[in-house]
Amino acid sequence: MSQDARDRREDGRPEQARPRDRTGRPLPYGTDDVPLAEDHEPGSVEEALLLGVALWNDERFFEAHECLEHVWHAAPDVDRDFWQGVIQVAVAGVHLQRDNLDGAMALFTRAAQRLSGYPDVHRGVDVEQLRTACHGAVAALSDAGAVIEVGFPEFPAMDGGPWFTPDAGALQPPDRPTPLPDAPVWLATGRAREPRRRD
């Protein structure tokens, strides 16, 4: 397919318009006989977070990770590894759904490493539960002699649920919704560093 024939957004940037299954795999145009991934357009970072959690709990991990990326892109420096670790757990769920056990193990390992620098509870998330789930999944996936059954946890929200703040020092969510950034904070502020891989 020539570059001119590629699917494009209104602003001219490339975008995949083919339908995707619930695990994010592209399908032939016109496919409608399988559950498809839906596009979600949250109005704020907080809405993206709540939607990502709901999709995670419905085991729609591909869609959950897409929503949670809005949170990661808006996060202050001190929380970027945290939200990236959360997203990596969701992406590990996608790999499990695709029967890519090596990919799932790699993502669970990276997520546990990213989350290791945060307290047991952070931004309304039970980080300790998430780390424990990652370590348990890696152990199960590493045991080549066992039948692999990795139980995927519901999103580990504490009472009051997960919350986002653009203020690194905040101890509670902001009073007003946080607008979705047009670009990740690290890019919008002109930092010359490359984004870290998440999957």
Rank of each mutant, 00 (worst) to 15 (best):
Q3I: 12
D4P: 00
A5V: 05
A5K: 09
A5S: 09
R8S: 11
D11A: 05
R13V: 02
R13S: 11
Q16H: 02
P19G: 03
P19N: 04
R20V: 07
D21L: 05
T23I: 11
R25Y: 01
R25N: 07
G30T: 01
G30I: 03
D32N: 14
D32G: 15
V34H: 06
L36W: 02
E38M: 10
D39H: 13
H40W: 11
P42N: 09
S44H: 11
S44F: 06
V45I: 08
V45F: 06
V45P: 00
A48I: 02
L49V: 02
L50Q: 13
L51K: 11
G52C: 07
G52E: 12
G52Q: 06
L55V: 00
W56E: 03
W56S: 04
F62H: 14
A64G: 05
E66N: 11
C67Y: 01
H70S: 12
W72D: 07
A74C: 06
R80L: 09
D81N: 13
Q84T: 04
Q88D: 05
H95V: 07
H95R: 10
L96F: 04
Q97P: 00
R98K: 15
G103K: 03
L107A: 15
F108E: 01
A111R: 00
A111F: 02
A112L: 03
G117K: 14
Y118R: 04
D120M: 08
R123F: 05
D126A: 11
R131P: 01
C134R: 02
H135F: 09
G136I: 00
G136S: 14
V138D: 03
A139K: 12
